[in-house]
């Protein structure tokens, strides 16, 4: 399978490019390497979240607990590190990922067992995970001073630096996990049997079962993968903001869902591309951060994002409906 850009992605690229051109026209300062590096740095956590969620959505599920998992993983890990004086980035990432995997496993088990809409179940576990963490781990905030220094080092690390008129600007190392996760997930979906199983189950569970895939097992892979990515993102996030709070991230799930949907993933499953999800996040991110540059207050963010989301849902659902009706398939 070659990497291809489909028609929908072309439209997204066109919209993003047109919007950038407009912003740059109104405010030429937008066109700078600083902007690009800035976008990369600040959108990195959203990108990893979105890629994790994409895998879940391709399998026909949904997850709104990934922020809670990210918080649980990173907060608990760093608490342990502070308590035992550990200062090792690999340890932080490793342990947070393990927490993420375990929580993902819990999600998958509940979905497999209860056979209820994953939205409701993961909404429950979102609160459960966050509640367990704040009740049994801790609910204190930690400032930069007490955090293991390795985190901040990673948060500030740059791959290379460029001299610009207003000083030096570097490409954040946060891009590394994003690139790694994007490639790994793309590879997982497109080149592994598990990945094809995920697509198969998302398309049609019964047919997937007939050719020997186990939907229940596939769901374990999917939610564990999503949990692992969330665990990783948690650490990246803390490293970037250089502080640890017990109540951050939570509540930011739905914009990520929106980004993945705008990126072309079907909530009914079976379809969705990593590159699409990245474009979706970028579009939302641009709308979120650049309105000020064109003279609108940031209060207009949601209006723009909501409109784009509704338009994207309406067109893609309507096309699907027309195609189904043409084949005399009725879904509602």
């Amino acid at each position: 399978m070659k990497f291809t850009i489909d028609r929908y992605q072309k439209i997204l690229i066109f919209i993003i490019a047109a919007y950038c051109a407009f912003v740059g026209f109104v405010n030429p300062a937008f066109f700078s390497i600083t902007t690009v590096f800035d976008i990369i740095r600040t959108s990195s956590t959203s990108l990893i979240f979105a890629i994790g969620l994409l895998v879940v959505m391709i399998s026909g599920g949904i997850d709104v607990s990934f922020m809670a998992i990210a918080l649980f993983g990173s907060y608990t890990t760093i608490n342990i590190m502070i308590a035992y004086g550990i200062d090792n980035l690999a340890f932080a990432v490793g342990l947070s990922i393990i927490f993420g995997a375990v929580l993902g496993l819990i999600n998958a088990s509940l979905i497999n067992w209860l056979k209820l809409p994953p939205f409701i179940i993961t909404l429950g576990t979102q609160n459960l995970f966050h509640g367990i963490m704040t009740t049994f781990v801790s609910d204190k905030s930690f400032g930069a001073g007490v955090l293991p220094p390795c985190l901040n080092q990673f948060g500030r690390a740059t791959l290379f630096q460029i001299q610009t008129g207003s000083g030096t600007i570097g490409l954040s190392a946060s891009i590394l996990p994003v690139v790694f996760v994007a490639l790994a997930t793309w590879g997982l979906i497109n080149f592994t049997m598990i990945g094809r199983g995920i697509v198969a189950v998302g398309n049609d569970e019964e047919s997937a079962r007939r050719i020997g895939f186990s939907p229940a097992r596939i769901r374990y892979y999917v939610y564990v993968w999503s949990g692992i990515l969330a665990g990783l993102t948690g650490i990246v996030y803390v490293a970037q903001i250089n502080a640890l709070y017990p109540n951050k991230l939570i509540g930011g799930e739905l914009p990520i869902v929106a980004a993945v949907v705008i990126g072309g993933a079907k909530i009914t499953g079976g379809d969705g591309k990593v590159f699409g999800a990245i474009l979706g996040v970028l579009l939302i991110y641009l709308l979120n951060s650049t309105l000020i540059l064109i003279g609108l207050s940031s209060s207009w963010n949601d209006l723009f994002i909501g409109s784009v989301l509704v338009a994207s849902i309406a067109t893609s659902s309507y096309q699907e409906r027309i195609r189904n009706r043409k084949n005399l398939i009725f879904t509602d």
Binding site: M193, R196, G197, V199, A200, G202, N203, D204, S207, A208, I211, G212, F213, K266, G270, D271
Partner: peptide, 17 residues
């Protein structure tokens, strides 16, 4: 069959799996 898979993959996937 799987709607969002190519004809080729639909033909081959079970064998490969």
């Amino acid at each position: 069959l799987f709607r969002h898979m190519s004809v080729a993959e639909n033909i081959a996937i079970e064998k490969i799996r």
